[in-house]
Amino acid sequence: MEEKNKQKQAAAKARADALSPADRSAIAKQAAGKRWAKEHGLPQAQFGSSEQPLVIGGIEIDCYVLDDGRRVLTQESFLTSIGRAGKAKGGQGVRTAVDKLPPFLAATNLQPFVDQELSQPTTPIEFVTPNGARVFGYPAEMLPEVCRVYLSARDAGTLMSSQSHIAQRADMLVRALASVGIVALVDEATGYQEVRDKKALSALLDKYLLQEFAKWAKRFPDSFYKEMFRLRDWTYPTVSGQKPGVVGKYTMDIVYDRLAPGLVQELETRNPKNDAGKRVSKHHQWLSEDVGHPALSEHIHAVTGLMRACDNWPQFMNMLDRAFPRKGASLRLEGFD
């Protein structure tokens, strides 16, 4: 027995000696993390790794399954996924006070849309990852619920301009998660989940979101608005960062009225304003990829060139009317629907 123990000790020493300093450090950190979790009653992640994150729309999201079965997203990943900064300004927000909402739901204008379950005092879940790191996270199920809060506020017309990009990201996430969810249910019902590639659902979600991001891509370059502001003798950009309301009317006249006959009327029908005077999407998102978007890009490029050649707004409009007269409403051009 003594000889057998000596052999085990020798083998253990040999394995330890073969480890690199980095490997030894990682093992020590993992052991320390587990001890800390046990001493302080913290949950431990049984599955998940920061080296193999969930990737959706090109954004890496660290996710884990805890030893009590909870699925969690790290706090930083949660914030990044909805378009917020991963870390709050000034280092604040790492924890949330027990009697407060998470920072991404704390805005006053969001409160009417926060349901009873989400409105409960919430603190990030502190847990230990498989490699021994102590991190904070939120339940994965909370992500679509938070998205719905922003979408409800958007539909009611109560979003602030600083929140609009979060609503856009939320819209994409909810659509993508719903699409992947039905695929997962079919796979589970048919048994295909046992043989499919482990990253299949993640890849599907990523592909869907990348397509959605493309729809939201900027179609009007900054140069277009810089030249418009110059000709109108406006300061660019404005102090608030917002464009004057009349810019939308100018854009309709300069661009959409001159692209195709009947286009403006069709866009107004398909993409009307809501009761708050807001549109759910941008007009250019309704143009076709093969005809509409190329025509839009070509027209904007040409119009911007005309602007650069002019000294004032009347001169530009005179040249625009000659070069690109309004199309009218008598015909429709195929490819713009």
Rank of each mutant, 00 (worst) to 15 (best):
M1V: 05
K4S: 15
K6D: 05
K6M: 09
Q9T: 07
A11P: 10
A11D: 09
R15Q: 12
D17A: 10
L19F: 07
D23M: 07
A26V: 00
A26R: 15
W36L: 03
P43Y: 09
G48N: 04
G48T: 02
S50N: 05
I56Q: 13
E60A: 14
E60Y: 02
D68H: 13
D68P: 04
R70H: 14
R71L: 06
T74R: 00
E76V: 15
K87Q: 12
A88R: 08
T96W: 00
K100R: 07
L101M: 02
P102D: 12
P102H: 07
L105A: 10
N109F: 00
D115M: 02
D115I: 02
E126P: 05
V128Y: 05
V128I: 06
G132Y: 04
A133W: 01
R134Q: 05
F136N: 12
F136Q: 13
Y138I: 08
Y138A: 02
P139D: 14
V146Y: 01
R148C: 10
S152A: 04
R154L: 00
R154Y: 00
M160P: 01
S161H: 14
S161G: 15
Q163C: 01
I166G: 01
I166V: 06
V174E: 11
L177I: 10
L177T: 06
I182Y: 02
V183M: 10
L185Y: 04
D187A: 12
E188I: 01
T190M: 09
Y192M: 06
L201Y: 10
L201T: 06
A203N: 10
A203G: 09
A203R: 09
A203S: 10
L205F: 05
K207Q: 13
L209G: 08
F213K: 12
K218R: 02
R219Q: 14
Y225P: 11
K226W: 15
M228G: 15
M228F: 12
V239A: 14
S240L: 11
I254M: 03
Y256D: 09
Y256V: 13
R258L: 09
P261F: 15
G262D: 08
E266H: 07
L267G: 04
E268W: 04
D275Q: 13
G277D: 04
K278N: 10
V280M: 01
H284A: 05
L287G: 04
L287Q: 04
S288W: 13
V291Q: 03
G292Y: 10
L296M: 05
H299E: 09
H301R: 08
A302F: 14
V303Y: 01
C310D: 15
Q315M: 11
D321Q: 09
P325D: 09
K327V: 11
A329I: 15
S330T: 10
R332W: 08
R332L: 06
L333K: 14
G335Q: 02
D337S: 08
D337F: 03
